[in-house]
Amino acid sequence: MNMLLKNREALLVVAILALLTLITLRFPGFIQPANLGRVYNDTSILIILALGQMAVILTRCIDLSMAANLALCGMVAGLINVALPGLPIPLVIAAVVALGAVLGSINGLLVWKLNIPPIVVTLGTLTIFRGSIFLLTGGQWINAHQMSDVFKGLPRADFLGIPALSWFSIAIMAIVFVVMTRTTVGRAFYAVGGNPHAAIYTGIDVGRTRFLAYCLSGALAGLAGYLWVSRYAVAYVDIALGFELDIIAACVIGGISIAGGIGSVPGAVLGALFLGVIKNALPVINISPFAQMAISGTVIIIAVAVNARAERRKGRVILKKAEAH
């Protein structure tokens, strides 16, 4: 749809390919299709979360509470499964998606109705959500043996040779892509972030649009909560601690402007994959997994610097070369 954005995504594809080439030089097995599939599968949850965060950032807000929301919803999914092992998994998923949306809507309401800066709201709810897990469980863990096999098995279930976890992220990608490009509310996300003042004149309710973005990010965090807990087969207070930084990193790397109004689904997905490749490559090329945090930080800073350069307005061009008179 527009050159610059396309270029930015092309740039990311090139960066990911370059990264893969570098890793392959040290460890040729990394680009085996099976391994790449594993890397994708491993990044699925991050992709889902980055797409939710993207909606929020597009509207000039930020959601620092996504990882805490994920942890709380994951714990609730686990508790439901422990209490009612026979409950069909789709119902469990529906319940935590709804719970996530409700938690997101709390952020949204505070931003919409009380006009509190998003960073303050989500910094606050981040601790409240995580603290609630403790209140709910008294600090107890839910371990693999307490979960039903169906509960744990779903993300690993194979369909057409691809694990269900990957299918989840592909489906979410498709849904969010349609929402962003083909629906009124999706376009409103862009309008609200691009020019909130103009959005009002266009008849768009800025606060309500932001509220909806938070509901979306919350719902996706809820889904990710189930996927996380079932995949790793454990739930405790500190799961996905600090993961909000990875989510924001994925968005920033994907070219989503923190100032709102600019960003795309392919961008967010590529940003998440970029991080996913790094994360999976570290052990392969013998770098301590403890380095991942520092690398994420560095990549955020580099990405935001690159984005800022691309977005920087060029000074207005007034001079025209002398007309032939």
Partner: peptide, 11 residues
């Protein structure tokens, strides 16, 4: 805000 989220992770 973004810079210090980045350095928060980096440091």
């Amino acid at each position: 805000i973004v810079v210090t989220i980045g350095t928060m992770s980096l440091f």
